[in-house]
């Protein structure tokens, strides 16, 4: 999902929610030039990570994506917006849609990796998510003091990791 500027065809790098005079939320996507035209300026000496943090904090409560939760670690997108850190690798799938404009802002419009690939990548992603799920379940059963189930889960985790 790539946004184009509302005013011209350039890729949008500014994504903002404005409140109109009659109290309606208006979502705008603008490129840097059109944003400047509209009087929106970004402080030049602020590191992008800080801008991103401010941006994360400013995408406010009206945002329905806030309640989207990762089905593995339970982190919600709202929590991520507050803390600025994701909970587990699977969050990148769980939040793929709401993360997109953030990634574009942080990475000159890019949303896809083109660099180095580990030699052992490939089919391992599914395995990694399975292990993550087992670890999340392990955390829950330990909290509820179900140690028998915990032992079974530990064995399963070790088995998968040894593969």
């Amino acid at each position: 999902m790539k946004f184009k500027c509302d005013r011209c065809d350039n890729p949008a790098t500014f994504h903002l929610t404005d409140i109109s005079d009659d109290g309606e939320a208006v979502v705008k996507h603008l490129c840097a030039d059109c944003a400047a035209d509209e009087g929106i300026h970004v402080k030049a000496d602020v590191p992008i990570s800080q801008l991103l943090e401010e941006f994360i904090l400013s995408t406010t409560s009206a945002d329905p994506s806030k309640t989207v939760a990762c089905d593995v670690c339970g982190t919600t997108f709202g929590e991520f917006q507050e803390e600025g850190r994701l909970g587990c690798p699977h969050d990148y799938d769980a939040f793929a849609e709401p993360l997109t404009p953030l990634l574009q802002d942080a990475h000159e419009g890019a949303t896809e990796h083109v660099g180095k690939v580990p030699h052992r990548a490939g089919g391992d992603q599914q395995k990694a998510t399975s292990i993550l799920r087992l670890r999340a379940e392990l955390k829950r059963v330990i909290a509820s003091e179900d140690y028998e189930r915990a032992a079974v889960l530990r064995d399963q985790i070790h088995e998968l990791e040894e593969l």
Binding site: Y92, L103, T111, E112, K116
Partner: peptide, 15 residues
């Protein structure tokens, strides 16, 4: 084994 995603690359705590 690093956390790696076909689309997003090496996965990090902060995007």
């Amino acid at each position: 084994d690093w956390a790696f995603h076909g689309r997003f690359g090496y996965l990090t705590a902060c995007p």
